[in-house]
């Protein structure tokens, strides 16, 4: 051996930062607490706190003559939700959110499947770019762009005319309830814009789930005698379901809460988000606004519970 062996414990580094590093190394929990405390405080105080304040508001009521809030516990505000006019708003929003979610899932699946199974290299980059690009531009700009596209003088009407399909557009617009004067003032228009705006949130989780399905499972199913459609039903779909449910949580809850799209594109009939907006703004009925905003929370809680039972979060 050499004359001066190197020491077993190195003493080269010292100082405050090193001392802190040593402390964190000995007590890893301390570092965790330091890292988590700020976001947890933020979440706990600002987010959960305001949510609880909102919940409390919903149990108050408003004095009809003075317009002042009566700070006494009551369920009368919730009872108001069941009035035909208000209940219609809830029903309309839930039906729209469901349709948007189902349509997004159907549209997203083939795109996600292609991206996960076939796209490689620059095609994959192109896929991500294509899906993410709409998310980079302003939400309002996109909606106003759609309003122009869907308007009576818009490009869609023009295109239908040129294709001699005006009868088709008119036929669709003459349908009761979902039709209207033009697409931009109909439920169909609202629906199209909702699907357009939220589609990326469905594609990405679905693609992530499909990416995790090993290719040899699909081969194994075929090997065991399953036709492509059987393979889809028994192997691909069940394994992609967690991703689809994760995506549907986005599309469903985002549609439930949105108040700008139906205001800009659509008939003047209200959605939950708009009801909250008008009740706490112009109408000054904060308790009713609070009660309205509890509805999506409850629906989402129910939905998440059902999704959890289905095992949607096992893969997370």
């Amino acid at each position: 051996m050499s004359a001066s062996p190197s020491p077993a414990v190195l003493t080269g580094k010292s100082g405050l930062l090193t001392a802190a590093s040593d402390l964190f190394w000995r007590r890893p929990g301390l570092l965790l607490v330091l890292m988590l405390a700020p976001p947890l405080l933020w979440l706990g105080v600002i987010y959960i706190g305001s949510l609880i304040a909102l919940l409390l508001q919903s149990f108050f009521s408003i004095d009809e003559f003075s317009g002042l809030i009566v700070y006494e516990f009551t369920l009368s505000t919730y009872k108001q939700l069941l009035l035909a006019a208000n209940f219609d708003i809830i029903l309309r929003t839930v039906v729209m959110a469901s349709l948007v979610t189902i349509t997004s899932a159907i549209l997203a699946f083939p795109i996600a499947y292609y991206a996960a199974r076939y796209a490689q290299g620059k095609w994959k980059a192109l896929f991500y770019l294509g899906v993410m690009l709409p998310l980079w531009s302003s939400y309002l700009v996109k909606i106003y762009a759609w309003k122009l596209i869907l308007a009576k003088e818009g490009i869609l009407t023009w295109a239908f005319e040129k294709l001699h399909l005006s009868w088709l557009l008119d036929g669709v617009l003459s349908l009761p309830v979902i039709g209207g004067n033009s697409l931009s003032v109909s439920y169909i228009g609202t629906f199209i814009v909702f699907v357009y705006i939220w589609l990326p949130y469905m594609i990405l989780p679905t693609q992530a789930a499909l990416e995790r399905v090993p290719g040899n499972l699909i081969e194994a199913a075929g090997d065991l005698g399953a036709t492509p459609s059987q393979t889809f039903r028994t192997v691909i779909l069940p394994l992609a379901l967690p991703g689809i449910i994760a995506g549907s949580i986005f599309t469903f809850s985002l549609t439930l809460g949105d108040y700008i799209i139906p205001q800009i594109v659509g008939s003047s009939r209200l959605f939950i988000g708009q009801a909250v907006y008008t009740q706490q703004g112009t109408a000054g009925n904060v308790p009713l606004a609070a009660a309205f905003s509890v509805v999506p929370i409850l629906i989402m809680a129910l939905y998440l519970w059902a999704a959890k039972k289905k095992g949607a979060f096992d893969a997370l």
């Binding site: 090993p214 040899n216 499972l217 081969e219 194994a220 199913a221 090997d223 065991l224 192997v235 069940p238 394994l239």
Partner: peptide, 12 residues
């Protein structure tokens, strides 16, 4: 029928 290298059992 095939026995796959990493077995390819259906996890669900």
């Amino acid at each position: 029928n095939t026995v796959f290298q990493d077995y390819a059992l259906f996890p669900h």
